[in-house]
Design a protein around this nucleic acid. Structure first.
Lengths: 219, 219, 219, 219
DNA sequence: CATGAATGAGACTTCATTCAT
DNA sequence: GATGAATGAAGTCTCATTCAT
């Protein structure tokens, strides 16, 4: 396999093309020839840059994971000092993720649908990634618990993963939505409200004047 | 294709065998011969009961969906009259689902990993099912809103789907847990707490003595 | 892979066809499709009876070896009691082998030319076979030494292999000869004479009136 | 294709490298890139010096043949005047050949195993070479017949080729021997004895005191 | 001259599906 | 109805060869 900067650029080109074709037709329905055709070169060329079909799918998935991680990693876990700030942060993250999947629907398809169904090893990799996302979410909760605006008895690891589950649901919703902007706002608001109300302390609730805490039922 | 009761029994046998083998090796790695061998008959016989390989996977997924729906459908949406009852109901449902996936890990594998990766149509079917689960969860929330123990301004459809996302996360967690009973209890508690606290009215919070509403931070 | 008598017959058919095609075009120039075409069936069928291309060549070579062994094995090592009888026996064996290769030129091609050039393992197998032929020739010499008509100081193992070398040369000669019957007789006579005169005791020489022991030079 | 002395040197370098690599991995398992890598240049360069892969193997085989011919050609056919001298000459030739193959096992591999398996034409070339060796051996016998120490009725062409067959056997033995020096001496002695005793006149036998003519059986 | 990126013919192999028995 | 032998489309991968730089 050749080296150098040009080679790396070529590998990225191929990975991008494979990303697209896998998302469109699915891993198994895609032939190496399809990837090559997408870029307009002979299929033999593919093998100059990747060892085999299994090799490219690994790279494609890895790119997908990196993109998602990058979208989440824009925020800092200890940024929020109050429930309000956390609530705002949740919405920023949610909106970012939602937009990510809206702008690149292939990303969702690759990550959610294609990473299963290839083989045991890749399925395992996806579960590990789920775990990684879990551990990335934990610090946000821990920050809130330590600063006293989230419940002290929160089961942080489990709650973190439950929250991620909502994100997954959001991503799938993004996948089907017609009016994506409106859907995003409804979805982000509901999820953020659910999380903030479900996790903050009573004290935080009473002090703040958070919009989600409806008083309608008390009237 | 043969008719009669015996035929239907045979189809179910094959579906069950396919369910098992698909879960173990994955759809694409499984041959028709593997399914037939599992049941000890010739693989030509398979085609007397199903049109083709694509046909059987549809049935397998359908069985998986039915099993999950059955587990959820044991409860009645309008059973709960108070936040406490809803909280208890949430835990019953959660525990039921968790146990379902623990008792039958193949179910999770089929539904989460294999229903992607086959083709566009089946992926679509899985998304529809996600929608179905969303609409099955809605009545529980609507019941609470109507009876006044859940927030009136709840975006019911969206929140229902967010809650389902937590369930998905729980199912995936079940998939990896070592001590399943302990994991289940932690998981169900956290998710139910998150939901109840995130969705109920302030009045309901103040009246009831719900365990999750920590007072530690107020001390 | 299917079993039964019919299956075995099919395997033999395919082996025979492969034998022919390998001999005609050589192992590497032959595709599985060529073997299948020879028998008039689809190339996929080949794989019902043999695991892969390497598998069939093993069988083909083994058949070739068996045929040669069978041709040699017709004689019994302890049959000859005198140099004359041994001389006659040598000619019978030589004629048998020569005819074998004349009747089936493919046999020589397979054994001498194709068994090298496939891979290390098969080359090794051919060398082992050469060894086997060596050990099959030894008893003939040992018989003669024990009965006193061959030289007592004969290095039996080495001489046996040297004799086999002549046989190889004869086989190659058979390969090129125009008038095969005449070539055979000249060749068998010369080789048998060379061997008998080269190995017998002086006593045996003087007693017998063997034709090869020319007296021309003494005149 | 470039010309000049330097070009010729390059061609020889490549031929030598190909010789080595073909011997190690076999013709079909060797890629042009393997040859180029052996010399540390780009594989495209190969095609400036040889037309194609088939072209280089021709040259490699030719080199192998030349080396063997050179080893045999060191002797002069009319050097021997008596059976004793011929016997000594046989041993010199035999020892030379044996050492040639011991010192350069690749030579044997190329000539015996790789010249088969390539294609019809090269196989033909090897058979022609066998013929050449036959005609190279003939003069030695003819010399003996003319000078009267070899049997007058010897079928010179055929016997020459039979003798060559022993040489082939010796070369293959060299290929497998553990203690090459000891194996060589045993082998050369046996073959030379077999030949001299098998070809000389009775008169020559009685006059000379050749060691191989055992008298043990006459006692 | 040297290079190595690109190419595509072609070989192997699998397996869903058909169909005669 | 059951079977499994036969099939060939289709896919992966290799590598000799070309040719622009």
């Amino acid at each position: 396999m050749p080296d150098g900067d040009l080679t790396e650029r070529r590998r990225q080109e191929i990975t991008a093309a494979a990303f697209k074709v896998f998302a469109e037709r699915g891993y198994h329905a895609t032939g190496i020839a399809d990837i090559a055709r997408e870029l307009g070169f002979g299929h033999g060329t593919f093998y100059r840059y990747f060892a085999n079909k299994r090799d490219i799918v690994t790279h494609v998935i890895e790119v997908a994971i990196q993109r998602i991680v990058a979208a989440v990693g824009a925020e800092s876990p200890d940024l929020a000092d109050t429930a309000e700030e956390y609530h705002a942060q949740l919405q920023r993250i949610g909106r970012g993720l939602y937009d990510l999947f809206i702008d690149d629907p292939q990303l969702a398809r690759i990550f959610f649908f294609e990473s299963g169904g290839v083989d045991q090893e890749l399925t395992e990799r996806m579960l590990e990634t789920t775990e990684l996302f879990g551990s990335l979410t934990e610090p946000y909760l821990r920050n809130g618990v330590e600063k006293g605006f989230l419940r002290a008895d929160l089961d942080v690891p489990v709650t973190a993963r439950a929250i991620n589950g909502m994100i997954i649901a959001g991503a799938l919703a993004a996948f089907r939505a017609d009016d994506s902007a409106a859907a995003r706002d409804r979805w982000v608001k509901s999820a953020a409200d659910l999380i903030i109300n479900g996790t903050r302390t009573r004290a935080a609730t009473e002090e703040g004047q958070l919009p989600p805490r409806s008083t309608a039922a008390t009237a």
